[in-house]
Design a protein around this nucleic acid. Sequence first.
DNA 1: CCTAACTTGAGAAGAAATTTTCATCCTCCT
DNA 2: AGGAGGATGAAAATTTCTTCTCAAGTTAGG
Lengths: 125, 125
Amino acid sequence: MERSTRQRRAIREAFLEAGRPLSPQEVLELARKKVPSLGLATVYRNLKNLLEEGFLVPVALPGEPPRYERAGQAHHHHFLCRACGRVYELSGCDLALTHLPPGFLAEAHEVTVYGRCPQCYSQAG
Amino acid sequence: MERSTRQRRAIREAFLEAGRPLSPQEVLELARKKVPSLGLATVYRNLKNLLEEGFLVPVALPGEPPRYERAGQAHHHHFLCRACGRVYELSGCDLALTHLPPGFLAEAHEVTVYGRCPQCYSQAG
DNA sequence: CCTAACTTGAGAAGAAATTTTCATCCTCCT
DNA sequence: AGGAGGATGAAAATTTCTTCTCAAGTTAGG
């Protein structure tokens, strides 16, 4: 049966506390604040578990390695800060799919906004 | 100085004739119709050249390997067929960026629509 | 507290995409 | 046509990300 370990708790808490999509590397860095000895293999193993048990869902962004976020959220999109590389969740969706050519069937869509997050807004670059 | 070779012409023509973003593998397959001996390394080398000379621009889609399309086109987005994996260009843009949280600065955005292209619309799956 | 079994950490191994190497081929100037 | 140097193809090498291996550490039931 699945056990509760310090590592597993630290990884789960990283997502709860970050409130934004995290890459495996980001998970490692955040969870190491609680379990410094944490290894990357353990992060990958637990990400896989958390996906299987439905706690996380994958988030794909153009040209970016996969990230993961809390499952069960309402339809939303993402913001990628070009300065720090962090991804944020944007609520709502203003997309109207009216211009599809004939014969195309839309089943889903994703919107990615690029720019500067508040922490990077005033910095050089 | 840069020479005009059969391979180089075949690769350039593949983009002109396809009229949609192509992955390196797709370029290889299309250009091999004209130059069957074409190798993948040559495709990569020439993609790099065509990017540098401004004939192509990279197209990144969520969770997809990079593709390339003709440079200099108007603002547009992309459609990814879930059945055949081909990417198409969608004209226009119905996105209104009104819901950014305070402190976020939007510089660009990308929209990806997923679904079925006309060729795959009526097929099983 | 004990023990079986699950977990972990580190490094090796894989997988996938792209780049480099190098001998040979081809293009273009003369 | 001749020749210098860029271009090509195939395979090896890189790079990046993810998974596997295995000895050692931990957890949970008894």
